[in-house]
Computed example of a mutant assay.
Amino acid sequence: MSGTGSPELTVSDATDLRVAVVAAQWHRTVMDGLLDGAQRALDDLGVTTRTVLRVPGSFELPVAAAVLARQGVDAVVALGVVIRGGTPHFDYVCQGVTEGLTRVSVDTGVPVGFGVLTCDTEAQAIARAGLAGSTEDKGHEAASAAVATAAVLRAATEPGRWPVAPTP
C-alpha cells in the first residue's frame, strides 16, 4: 500500500481475530517505529489476541511467518527494512523476502501484511517508519491491511455466504 491513494479500510469486528506480528531487529530505530505503528493499528481495530516475535533480520521473516500462520492465527504482520548498499545483497534479500511472504500467504490462506521497507537510504526508511516527523506509517498500514483481509476472508467463508454472485 502506498501513502498516496491508499484505501479507506473499514473493519466491522476484529476483536476476536488472532494476529501475529513478526519483526526484524536490524535498523532498530526504524523497526521500533514500524512495530509501534502495527501495535497502534491492532489497538485501533480492537485486536487483543496477539503475538509479537522478533527475528534477526528481514530474510528470516518468511520462515517465522510460516510457523505463525500454521499455528492458527488469522493474520500475520511482517515488518522489516532493507536498505540498499553497494552490493547485490539488497536485491537478493528483497526478492527472497517478498517471494517468501507471498508464498506463506498463498500456501496457508493466512493474510500476511507486508510491512517490509525496501529503501535506497536510511532517510527514506525513517520517513516511512511512523516516527515523529515521518510522512508515512507503514507498520500501521501493514497491520491494518492484514486484519482487514482476515475479516473479509472470515466473512466470505461464513456459512450461508456462498455462492456469491460475481460483480460485473
Results as ranks from 00 to 15, higher is better:
Val22Glu: 07
Ala23Gln: 08
Ala23Pro: 11
Ala24Pro: 11
Ala24Tyr: 07
Gln25Pro: 00
Val30Thr: 13
Met31His: 04
Gly33Thr: 01
Ala38Met: 00
Gln39Val: 12
Arg40Ile: 12
Arg40His: 04
Arg40Ala: 12
Ala41Pro: 02
Leu42Gly: 02
Asp43Gly: 14
Asp43Asn: 15
Leu45Ile: 08
Gly46Lys: 12
Leu53Phe: 13
Leu53Cys: 09
Gly57Gln: 07
Phe59Ser: 12
Leu61Glu: 09
Pro62Tyr: 07
Pro62Arg: 07
Val63Met: 14
Ala64Lys: 08
Ala64Leu: 08
Val67Trp: 12
Leu68Arg: 08
Leu68Gln: 10
Ala69Asn: 05
Arg70Met: 06
Gln71Ile: 03
Gly72Thr: 07
Asp74Arg: 03
Val76Met: 02
Val76Asn: 00
Val77Ile: 09
Leu79Pro: 10
Arg84Leu: 02
Gly85Asp: 01
Gly85Tyr: 00
Gly86Met: 06
Gly86Glu: 14
His89Gly: 07
His89Trp: 08
Phe90Glu: 09
Val93Gln: 10
Val93Ser: 06
Val93Met: 09
Cys94Pro: 11
Cys94Ser: 15
Cys94His: 12
Gln95His: 15
Gly96Ser: 15
Thr102Pro: 01
Thr102Phe: 07
Thr102Leu: 11
Thr102Ser: 11
Ser105Thr: 03
Ser105Gly: 15
Asp107Thr: 14
Asp107Cys: 11
Gly113Asn: 05
Gly113Met: 06
Gly113Leu: 08
Val116Ser: 01
Leu117His: 03
Leu117Arg: 01
Thr118Pro: 00
